[in-house]
Write a protein that binds this DNA or RNA. Structure first.
Length: 511
DNA sequence: TTAGGGTTAGGGTTAGGGTTAGAGCCGGTGCCCTGCT
C-alpha cells in the first residue's frame, strides 16, 4: 500500500485542502498499481486523478487525449502552475520540435498524445524503451464512441499498452454507461479494473419533448423559447448547414441576443473565438453540432435544446449534462418532428461501407496485392474505389489487425484474407444493427408516456436522484411556467486583474 | 546565429442509396502531414 500523504501533495501542487468525491480513492488505487476506471461527473477535477500520481511516480505518465485543444490547455495550465516537466506531441509541433520532445522524453513526467500519434512508429519506438509509470486514457468513452468507426486508432490502445510493458492503466470519463464501461475494459484489455463509478443523473434539470408537425415549425418554437428566456443556451444540430442558417435566422428575429454557430467545418481560430465568447458570456445562444462540447465547462447554461435528435441516449445524456453545472434549475428541450428519425439513420449508414462497397474494395485490393507493390496513398485508393475516407480507414484498420498490411505492403495470404473479409462483413453487420438499435432506443424514449427522467437514466443506473426542480413534461412541468432572465452582465465593471484573468486563464477550471 | 513565434493552404469529401410507406430529403464527430513566409 502507498503511504503518501496525499492531502499534503494536493495542497502543495494544486492548492486545494481537500479532495473532491472520488479523487482520493482513484489516486490511491493508481498509486497502488491497480488498473482503474473512473467515471466522475465533469467539473469534479478528473485530471488531478493522474496529474498528482504523475508527480509522485517514477517514470513517465502517458496521457491519451482526444483533442489537440484539450492537450494544449492542460499543458499550458500545468506550466502556468509551475509544473514544467510536461509536454504534448501533436500536429501543432513541427518535425524539429517533435524530435526535441522525443529526444528529451526521460526529462518529462507527463506526456500528452492523441491515439493517432501513438501509432507513429518513431513515437511508439521511443515510448517502448521508456519506463512508463502510468498509461491514462482521458475522455475514455471515445474508445467506444469513436473507436469502432471514426477513429479506429482508439481500438489499438490495448496493443500499445502491451508494447509499453503493460504499465498500470487509468481510464477516465465524465459519462460512461455500463455498456461503454465494458467496452472500455475490453478494448484496453484490462479485465481486473477497479471501478469508481459515480451516477450521472442530474437532479436540477427538467426534461421536455416538444412535438412539432413539421421541422419548419422548429424555428418558430426556438424563437418563442428564447424570447421567453434570456439565459445561456445551446442548440444542438446534426447538420452544419442548418446550425448556420438557424443562427442567422435567430439573429434576425431576436435582435437583443447574441447568437453564433459552431461546427467542425470552421477554421480553428474561429472555433476558439466562438468558444471563448460563449464561455465569457458574450454570447447568449450557440447553434452547434456535436463538435461543441468536450472540454467546455460553462457553469450557467440554462437551456440545452435539441433541434435534431442525437444518435443514441448516451450522446443525449452527455449533451444535456452540459446544462446547469452550477446546480441551478436548467431545462432540456427536444424539438421532435415525425420525420426526424431519418437524419441519424443516414448518418449511421454513411459511416459504414455497404456490401457492394466491400466487394469493390476487396477486389481492388486483390488486384494490387498480386503486383507486390506498396499500398498506394490513401487518395489513390479512395479515387479507385470511391470509398469515403472514414470507410477506407475502417478497412485499413482491419487489414492491419489481421496482419495483412505491414509497412504499407499488402501481405499475400489467402486464408487470412478470407478470415479478414468475413470478419469485416460481420463487424459491419453487427455495428449497423447495434447503432440502429441504439437509435430506436432513443426514439422510443421520446415516445414514452411515463416519466422522462426515469426513462432516460433507468437503463444506466440503479438509483435515480429525486429531482430538486419540476421533473418533466410528463410529471406536470411546462417550460412556459419558468422564465430565466439573467441580470445584464457588464464586463466593464470588472477590475483589470479580473479581466486579465479572464483573458489568460481561459478554461482554468476545466477537467 | 538561433530559438521561437507566426501565417496560410490543400489533401484526405461534394452524391448516392436507402432494413419502415412514399415525397422529398440532406449528411455529425479529428487527427496528421507537407510546405510556405
Amino acid at each position: 500500500m502507498n503511504t503518501y500523504d496525499l492531502e499534503k501533495y494536493l495542497k502543495t501542487h494544486f492548492g486545494f485542502d481537500t479532495f473532491r468525491e472520488g479523487q482520493k480513492e482513484i489516486i490511491s488505487d493508481v498509486l497502488n498499481g491497480y488498473d482503474v476506471l473512473g467515471v466522475l461527473p465533469t467539473g469534479t477535477g478528473k485530471s488531478i486523478c493522474y496529474q498528482l500520481p504523475a508527480m509522485l511516480l517514477d517514470g513517465i505518465t502517458v496521457v491519451v487525449s482526444p483533442l489537440v485543444s484539450l492537450m494544449v490547455d492542460q499543458v499550458r495550465q500545468l506550466k502556468a502552475a509551475g509544473f514544467k516537466r510536461v509536454a504534448a506531441i501533436n500536429s501543432f509541433l513541427d518535425p524539429r520540435q517533435k524530435r526535441q520532445v522525443l529526444d528529451r522524453l526521460s526529462h518529462y513526467r507527463l506526456l500528452y498524445l492523441s491515439p493517432e500519434m501513438l501509432q507513429n512508429q518513431h513515437v511508439a519506438d521511443r515510448l517502448g524503451i521508456m519506463d512508463v509509470a502510468l498509461f491514462v486514457v482521458d475522455e475514455a468513452h471515445c474508445i467506444s464512441q469513436w473507436g469502432h468507426e471514426f477513429r479506429t486508432d482508439y481500438l489499438r490502445l490495448g496493443d500499445m499498452i502491451g508494447k509499453m510493458g503493460r504499465p498500470p492503466v487509468l481510464a477516465l470519463s465524465g459519462t460512461a454507461t455500463p455498456e461503454v464501461q465494458s467496452d472500455i475494459i475490453r478494448q484496453l484489455d484490462c479485465e481486473g479494473m477497479q471501478l469508481h463509478i459515480y451516477p450521472m443523473d442530474k437532479a436540477n434539470i427538467s426534461f421536455v419533448v416538444e412535438h412539432v408537425n413539421h421541422s419548419d415549425q422548429k424555428v418558430d418554437k426556438l424563437t418563442e423559447l428564447l424570447a421567453h428566456n434570456h439565459a445561456p443556451a445551446m442548440i444542438y444540430f446534426s447538420s452544419r448547414l442548418q446550425a448556420e442558417n438557424t443562427a442567422h435566422e435567430l439573429m434576425r428575429r431576436l435582435s437583443d441576443r447574441q447568437v453564433a454557430y459552431y461546427h467542425g467545418g470552421m477554421e480553428h481560430t474561429d472555433r476558439l473565438l466562438i468558444q471563448q465568447q460563449f464561455m465569457n458570456g458574450q454570447l447568449d445562444v450557440i447553434c452547434c453540432t456535436s463538435a461543441f462540447g468536450m472540454g467546455i465547462d460553462k457553469k450557467d447554461i440554462r437551456l440545452v435544446i435539441h433541434y435534431h435528435i442525437p444518435p443514441q441516449l448516451e450522446s443525449f445524456i452527455q449533451e444535456v449534462g452540459r446544462a446547469g453545472r452550477d446546480g441551478n434549475h436548467s431545462i432540456s428541450i427536444i424539438l421532435y418532428a415525425p420525420s426526424d428519425d431519418m437524419l441519424p439513420k443516414k448518418l449511421i449508414q454513411s459511416e459504414l461501407p455497404s456490401t457492394s462497397d466491400l466487394d469493390c474494395i476487396f477486389s481492388y485490393l486483390h488486384t494490387i496485392t498480386h503486383e507486390d507493390q506498396p499500398l498506394p496513398v490513401d487518395a489513390v485508393v479512395m479515387e479507385e474505389t470511391g470509398l469515403p475516407e472514414i470507410q477506407w480507414r475502417f478497412i485499413k484498420h482491419h487489414l492491419k489487425r489481421h496482419q495483412l498490411l505491414e509497412d504499407n505492403i499488402l501481405i499475400t495470404n489467402r486464408d487470412k484474407w478470407e478470415v479478414m473479409k468475413e470478419e469485416v462483413e460481420r463487424v459491419v453487420r453487427d455495428r449497423y444493427t447495434y447503432k440502429m438499435m441504439k437509435l430506436s432506443e432513443l426514439i422510443m424514449s421520446l415516445q414514452t408516456q411515463g416519466c422522462r427522467r426515469v426513462m432516460l437514466y433507468k437503463p444506466f443506473q440503479k438509483d435515480i436522484k429525486e429531482p430538486v426542480v419540476p421533473c418533466c413534461d410528463h410529471c406536470g412541468f411546462a417550460w412556459q411556467k419558468v422564465r430565466f432572465d439573467i441580470a445584464k452582465r457588464n464586463p466593464e465593471t470588472l477590475d483589470w486583474i479580473a479581466r486579465l484573468n479572464r483573458l489568460f486563464l481561459q478554461g482554468e477550471a476545466n477537467g
